[in-house]
């Protein structure tokens, strides 16, 4: 058996330049978790239906299970690990805690990343807009209520500061 082709890629991950080797068949999710040690991004389905693996690619939220690592050459990736500014939590992270918007927590990274992408584009979303934009993120614990409240509250706080 021939050795699989290894690609050499450079990208920016959470504001840091990183280089890595990967196989063409590896998804961005696999590389983040298995090669780059960023296990905050979770796999829930590997078919783009649950949003647990959401990352921001340049300025758009995507499912990292449906992106090949090979596609990210020269691009910028933000994962849940990149949301906080050092020890200073992002308002969304803080509001998720204050509103008890997480239970098991495994969908939380995806929700935070998707919500951040939403608020970057729309700082004053309605409840319906939040529900629409987070419809690709499944949560089975909370019934979404507290998540939606946390996002709306974070948006309000971010607008006022």
């Amino acid at each position: 058996m021939s050795k699989p082709q290894k690609l050499h890629l450079s990208t920016r991950l959470n504001g840091e330049d990183v280089e890595f080797l990967c196989e063409a068949r590896q998804s961005l999710l696999e590389v983040l978790r298995d090669e780059l040690g960023h296990t905050g991004t979770k796999e829930g389905c590997a078919t783009g239906d649950c949003g647990a693996c959401s990352v921001i690619l340049d300025d758009r939220v995507v499912c990292s299970c449906l992106v090949l690592a090979a596609e990210v050459e020269g691009r910028e990736i933000t994962t849940v690990e990149g949301l906080a500014d050092g020890d200073h939590l992002h308002p969304l992270q803080r509001k998720f805690l204050e509103h008890a918007a997480l239970q098991c927590g495994v969908c939380t990274p995806g929700f935070l990343v998707a919500a951040r992408a939403l608020l970057d584009r729309n700082p004053d979303p309605t409840e319906r807009e939040v529900r629409y934009h987070l419809a690709g993120n499944l949560c089975r614990c909370t019934g979404y209520d507290k998540i939606i409240r946390a996002v709306l509250d974070a948006a309000a706080e971010m607008r006022s500061t």
């Binding site: 296990t39 991004t41 994962t79 690990e81 949301l83 805690l97 997480l102 927590g105 939380t108 990274p109």
Partner: peptide, 17 residues
């Protein structure tokens, strides 16, 4: 606020996988 909260919102919590 839950004791495991910060780990879970920052991606540091260690799940089985």
């Amino acid at each position: 606020i839950r004791h495991d909260g910060i780990d879970k919102v920052t991606g540091r919590a260690v799940y089985g996988a």
